[in-house]
Design a protein around this nucleic acid. Structure first.
Length: 204
DNA sequence: GTACTGATCTGCT
DNA sequence: GCAGATCAGTACC
């Protein structure tokens, strides 16, 4: 049966709620006719002007982060340290967004292994999953969700969502303590995974 | 044209 | 667990 892309209107509401809603959704990319997809296992919310860790802290607009000021449904891709990271822009009037930090590989794992040049830890980090799924700033920055190149499906449902501190922002003072990172509890495809793996990787 | 920044990754200890 | 690698994009001169 034909899979249905999701209704993304929930991205227009509260960013923290939207972040939790995204867990378990399946992201599918089509690059040169090659399909790859994965289930979202880890996300982080970035609350625009209030959030010291966000690129849009204090509402400063630059060429790089301008996409964050677009209405929800757009994708914001940025590069750093030679890697790309992908965000879903949320809300209509605030520069907020959700960083996709990790996914569980589904379709096209051979392609991901090929793109990554290794067969372990394919997608358990922001820079890793974009490479595995073939996402790049040139083609994907500013595009809409659910177009020819990138689609989102319902995917799976997490049994339990765990909120933790964000990662990689140790220099962001008080923002390091915000519990804006959400993971599927018991799923090993998240960054810095520790603990025990759930029977079904934490899915229902 | 040059300098600097960064929401990372990898390998080594 | 930690330090070093690494690179594109942006800002500034």
């Amino acid at each position: 049966m034909e899979k249905q892309t999701i209704d993304i209107s929930f991205l227009g509401g509260n960013t923290l709620d939207a972040a939790q809603n995204l867990l378990g959704k399946e992201i599918e990319t089509v690059i040169d006719g090659i399909i790859t997809s994965g289930f979202i296992t880890e996300v982080e919310a970035y609350l625009g002007t209030l959030d010291r860790a966000s690129h849009t802290y204090k509402g400063k607009i630059t060429k790089k982060n301008a996409m964050m000021f677009e209405p929800y449904g757009h994708i914001y891709v940025y590069t750093m340290h030679g890697h790309s990271c992908m965000n879903f822009v949320t809300t209509t009037d605030k520069p907020e967004g959700i960083l996709i930090r990790a996914v569980e590989p589904n379709v096209g794992q051979e392609t991901m292994i090929d793109r990554r040049g290794r067969n372990k830890n394919l997608t358990d980090g922001p820079g890793k999953l974009t490479k595995a799924l073939g996402i790049n700033r040139n083609d994907h920055n500013g595009m809409d969700i659910n177009n020819e190149l990138l689609k989102v499906y319902e995917g799976k449902t997490p049994i339990e969502i765990e909120a933790t501190k964000r990662i990689g922002i140790d220099n962001k003072e008080e923002a390091v303590d915000y519990l804006y990172r959400f993971i599927v509890k018991g799923n090993p495809h998240v960054s810095r995974f520790k603990g025990k793996i759930d029977k079904n990787n934490g899915w229902k």
